[in-house]
Design a protein around this nucleic acid. Sequence first.
DNA 1: TTTTCGACCAATACCGTTTTTCGGTCGAAA
DNA 2: TTTCGACCGAAAAACGGTATTGGTCGAAAA
Lengths: 193, 193
Amino acid sequence: MDEKKNKIIEAAEQLFAQFGFFKTTMEDIAKKAHMAKSSVYYYFKSKEDIFAEVIRQDTRLFQQKLETAVAAADSPEAKIRAYVTTRMTHLQDLSKFYLTLTDEYLDHYFFVEEVRKNFYAYENRVLKNLLLDGKQQKYFDVDDIAVISRMISIAIKGLEYPLFVDKNGYDPVQESNDMLDVIFKGIEKRSNI
Amino acid sequence: MDEKKNKIIEAAEQLFAQFGFFKTTMEDIAKKAHMAKSSVYYYFKSKEDIFAEVIRQDTRLFQQKLETAVAAADSPEAKIRAYVTTRMTHLQDLSKFYLTLTDEYLDHYFFVEEVRKNFYAYENRVLKNLLLDGKQQKYFDVDDIAVISRMISIAIKGLEYPLFVDKNGYDPVQESNDMLDVIFKGIEKRSNI
DNA sequence: TTTTCGACCAATACCGTTTTTCGGTCGAAA
DNA sequence: TTTCGACCGAAAAACGGTATTGGTCGAAAA
């Protein structure tokens, strides 16, 4: 049962990555998983269902990766840096792999929007916690954690942008760290206060 | 000569704003400018040419607006805030006016890309100058002005994003100022250095 | 000489129709 | 419980013919 399901998901994942959601047919998936189309429907109730499962798995792996990276860093600042840089490089890899999907993303397709929202919510939670830790450990000087985490999210979105437009000659880790330098230190002269 | 050209541009601007580039025909433009289509071609060599001129004018006005706003502010910080908030509100207005165009933007059409690049180059120049002023007047503590201005640009791009996606319930001035608070002050605790 | 315009052209958008493809179902068989 | 061929309706692709559209040209106003 689960083995068959995995086989289908694996087949689907590759096809989605290569051709995108719409260009991949159930026939394709079935063939790649070595079974008849109607057999696929025995395991999944719809095409979107398969897609949702693929996304769910990817997201789970992504979040694990993020959590590992964050856990490996020790100071609150290092944790935030780890989070952001890991996130950016992973996204860069994804955009290379899911080449067709990035185009489909542009059009506002059904629950992709929702997946994104969920991820942003997750991201916000993580950032808030990291900021709170940093605040309690007296690393950060922040009043309104909600506002600051939102600002970091927005900055990340700005960092994300070139990944889908410029594409080449962009070093997300370098840029992320530059950005975080600014966010952590600010640019205002302090000595003469 | 120039008067006729302006008449054409004015007509074209309204039509482009209302219907977008592709749904506006040369016939439409000619009719609105009260002349025959071939007469329009006496003044402009192509439809894209007209569009380019419309954009050029809009951009010129936009830049004037920005320069006025910046000039009216007095401290370097206030100037940067004025720049960013003016920029964001103007963009918000634009996205309301050019409703069809925002969709067309998504597809990667010809020189829109170039216009955008030009604007980013302009923006970078302005930001660099403002940062340099601030540095010389000892308001800012920045080593590499190029990097910092780039980071501010990126942050702006993040602020821009909701304008074209979420659209509602978004206060660009508030968000811009929150972002600039972070950029100016940073979030790192300073007292214990 | 400068400006206007009707007539014209080639490329492509559009439109109604037919054909094919696709997501999904069903019942029989293994 | 699992597999599959046959089938369905809806939607997409293919198609061929017509209309529109961006752009040109040469003649006639001005």
